[in-house]
Amino acid sequence: MSDQEFDPMTDHEYDGIRELDNRLPEWWLALFGITIIFGFIYWLHYEFGGGHTQVQELNLAMGVIQSVKGSGPSFSEDQLNALFTAETVGKGHEIFTAKCAACHAAEGGGLIGPNLTDKFWLHGKGTSADIFEVIAKGVPEKGMPPWAEQMTEEELVATAAFVHSLKDRNVPGGKPPQGEEAP
């Protein structure tokens, strides 16, 4: 028998190209076999073996998220007023510039969203608790996002503190009043 390693096959010659007929490398055969076996078992498990569907997996994961999430922040009017300090207002100003100014303008005079510096309110009456509620839960049907999904509790409080501080500033060039006047 010829030595596979070095003797080309006699009847294989194409434009000068010869061919050896070496055995398939064992590690390669093993790799091929293992991937086929793995694939088959994986397929059996998810098609017939009761493996979770993707919807089941998602529901499990969302359950975990719900369990660690808690019920969301809630404050009374007095608690909030106590938290609205010069420090929180300052921090809230930074957040407002980064996240709110795109719609409410840098000074709060309103742009896509309403003017926050007048006496008129579309949602609630402009109390500290109302402002916090609108920021936290948003008004999704009008394009105001629920910021509790994106901000920590402290950030929500700070933002509410800053917005609260804007009341009645009546910045020049602000949007005309929308909603109802609140004292």
Partner: peptide
């Protein structure tokens, strides 16, 4: 499969590997 053996002037390592991996 054409240019490598031509440029190196070496025979193809394994004809049977060609068959198996082509069809697979």
């Amino acid at each position: 499969y054409y240019y490598l053996p031509k440029a190196a002037n070496r025979p193809i390592f394994s004809y049977r590997l060609s068959i198996i991996h082509f069809w697979a």
